[in-house]
Design a binder for these strands. Structure first.
Length: 638
RNA sequence: GCGCCCAUAGCUCAGCUGGAUAGAGCGCCUGUCUACGGAACAGGAGGCCGGGGGUUCGAAUCCCUCUGGGCGCACCA
């Protein structure tokens, strides 16, 4: 069972018991096929599949299951319909109990088997602009990391930056020529592509000149890779400049990556020669056209011939195939991963599969370790092609993010003039950045999508701002009720506690959250989160234990959806699909809005008012927690 | 030629791993309310799920095969 109080999961064992009782123990393990339903709260579809095995008509089989089904205190209606669907309607009292027991702490039980997961994401190149593709792998990877940690996995972030290889001779020479402190050198931080282009132009222009720049650049590569101290020191300073650029982007985005997570291509350099030697000696790699290659099974090239993974070029140099092999070996052997995620662009798929296949063959990636390429689809421009600026150059990421913030700012200035300048600036950043991130996260990670500011910033539809807006309205209600402080101590503590991104990282400290949640179940008491303890509030996570009464249809729908939260997170973890969390939050926001329209909160009295306030608080808690797992902030106002 | 990802409402996308009459948002049409934040809510029109076979009690989903796109396929990463 994955969630604290998920109705569907709680029904499963009862259905299994009924099936065993009706048809015999040998059927106990058959999938009861419990599914959402448009005709009831939930439906059981096991009868149709079982009918043939037990030699009965499907409806009769369904009747037998129903007869043996003990749903006392859980369901108020059980009916068979169609070919043999069993429709269940939950008892409102039971829903209330589940909701109140779940309120508001542990979102989900930790995974049954916590894993040690290496997540490779972001991976920009030194002295190059991060493009929107990097943006998306960064955003998706960071969200996956947070969800996995929240469910108890130990996650090791790996930022596999491109900091090694032949271009570095050119880059270093260029840097030395213009002077490390020159304005042109400053481009490394502000406009890395311009820096790269300048070096490249110099290189191309001098290609035939024996004493020219290109020649010195080639010599510089040799010096770098053979361990020349002075060159190495220059290289280190160069990389450090690029890290400043990366960190500026990460900071703007609220990404939890730090320098500690950087394990660039250069860090594997020392192992490459030995790696090649080993593969060659073991007969896994052989020389082909002067290059040392592996030919993993199942890969054929254009001419139908086996396709090589080049691990040592004919000139003796190493490429990314070699470093990727060293990397995967390191992640399994040293980092002791039992799951390795590559949040990397879809075009790299074949390469990564070849690396994995070779690693499996070499025994560096045992069958017990799962390696997954989380394919990131391209972000397209309005012309349906990979997003580029009008000039054809890659879009400057920082400018793009700033534009998102500016656009959000314009909307907020117009709609909320009463807010202070500072408040509007904060909200604009939260909304603008949130919109961009949500757009990256809300569609399947492997689908391409068209980048469109107007759509992602819209306050209706499946967008970040819509979800944020629902949360802001709840804050407003709680504020007017005079209970905002009381009800949102958790969030307040978090927001005051530090910068975005890092706060989330600290907050959901995998191991802690997991144990705490586990304790809750064993004890059967109200949930306590690590957050609550930090905030120094009551054991209920800052939200008073006002019982929530589930009466109106809108309240019921909202309650049922709230109970799906944990199961949703587990699906995200298993399928590695953050967009499911987006869909969940969007639906939650929609259901809240309907509730808000149909069930007066502040105008109600006494226990009804208290109950609805508590429900609002719980929804807010879920919205902000869910957004947090997506790496998106929840504005105070908007 | 091989591989990967696709093809679902006019547009942008979902579809919970095979369940009933395929959903949402935008756009379009209609209606509602003293508006707890109207950036609202309720309803409607709009689909042979690219085509054709197959498996199954049951297919948008699995298999095969066409058609039509995107990307990748030897010394850049």
């Amino acid at each position: 069972m994955n969630s604290v109080n998920n109705p569907a999961e709680m029904v499963v064992p009862r259905v299994q018991a009924a099936i065993a009782s009706a048809f015999g123990e040998e059927y106990r393990e058959t999938d009861p096929v419990v599914r959402p339903s448009q005709f009831a709260d939930i439906q059981i579809n096991a009868a149709m599949a079982l009918a043939k095995k037990v030699g009965m008509a499907p409806r009769d089989a369904a009747a037998r299951i129903v007869e043996a089904l003990d749903l006392d205190g859980i369901c108020t209606a059980v009916e068979i319909s169609g070919p043999g669907f069993i429709n269940l309607t939950f008892d409102g009292t039971w829903i209330e109990e589940l909701l109140n027991a779940a309120s508001p702490g542990a979102p989900a039980l930790p995974a049954a088997e916590a894993q040690r997961v290496v997540v490779d994401y972001s991976s920009p190149n030194v002295a190059k602009e991060m493009h929107v593709g990097h943006l998306r792998t960064t955003v998706v990877g960071d969200s996956l990391v947070k969800v996995l940690e929240a469910l108890g996995d130990t996650v090791i972030r790996q930022n596999h930056i491109g900091d090694w290889g032949t271009p570095f001779g050119m880059l270093i020479e260029h840097w030395l020529e213009i002077g490390e402190d020159s304005p042109e050198a400053a481009l490394l931080v502000d406009d890395p592509s311009a820096f790269y282009q300048a070096a490249r132009a110099k290189f191309d222009a001098s290609a035939t000149d024996e004493d020219g720049f290109a020649t010195r650049a080639r010599q510089r590569v040799v010096a770098l890779q053979s361990g020349d101290e002075e060159t190495f020191a220059v290289w280190q300073r160069l990389v450090a400049q690029s890290k400043r650029y990366f960190n500026a982007i990460y900071s703007m985005l609220g990404i939890s990556l730090t320098d500690d997570h950087i394990a660039g291509e250069s860090s594997y350099d020392a192992h490459l020669a030995q790696l090649c030697q080993e593969l060659e000696e073991r007969g896994i790699a052989r020389i082909s056209d002067g290059a040392l290659c592996t030919f993993p099974a199942g890969f054929t090239g254009r001419d139908g011939e086996p396709m090589p993974l080049i691990i040592r070029k004919s000139d003796g140099g190493y490429g990314y195939g070699t470093t990727d092999l060293a990397t995967i070996r390191y992640r399994v052997r040293e980092l002791e991963a039992n799951r390795v995620l590559y949040v990397v662009g879809a075009p790299q798929n074949m390469h990564l599969r070849m690396v994995m296949a070779t690693a499996r063959e070499a025994g560096w990636l045992p069958d017990t370790v799962e390696a997954v390429h989380v394919q990131i689809g391209n972000v397209l421009g309005e012309d349906g092609k990979i997003l580029k600026s009008r000039s054809g150059a890659p879009v400057k990421l920082m400018a793009l993010l700033e534009e998102a913030v500016d656009r959000a700012r314009a909307v907020i200035d117009a709609s909320r003039p009463e807010l202070t300048e500072a408040e509007r600036a904060v909200t604009a950043r939260q909304v603008g950045i949130g919109a961009v991130k949500y757009a990256d996260l809300s569609v399947g990670h492997d689908t391409e999508y068209v980048f469109d500011f107007d759509r992602m910033l819209a306050l209706s539809g499946n967008t970040g701002p819509y979800v944020q807006y629902a949360a802001a309205r709840i804050r407003s209600i709680l504020r007017k009720a005079g209970v905002l402080e009381r009800y949102t101590a958790v969030e307040a503590a978090r927001i005051d506690g530090g910068t975005p991104g890092t706060s989330a990282g600290t907050r959901i400290d995998g191991g802690t959250a997991a144990t705490t949640a586990g304790t809750v179940i064993d004890g059967g008491t109200a949930a306590t989160t690590g957050v609550a303890e930090t905030a120094g509030t009551d054991s209920d996570g800052g939200i008073p234990a006002t019982p929530i009464a589930v009466v109106e249809p809108a309240e019921r729908a909202l309650a049922l959806h709230l109970l799906e939260y944990g199961a949703t997170l587990h699906k995200v973890r298993e399928a590695l699909e953050p967009h499911r969390l987006c869909t969940y939050l969007f639906e939650l926001a929609q259901l809240f809005t309907a509730f808000y329209d149909q069930c007066p909160v502040l105008k109600s009295e006494d226990s009804v008012r208290e109950s609805r306030l508590a429900l609002c608080a719980l929804v807010l808690h879920r919205l902000s927690e869910g957004l947090d797992l997506l790496g998106i902030e929840t504005p105070e106002n908007m």
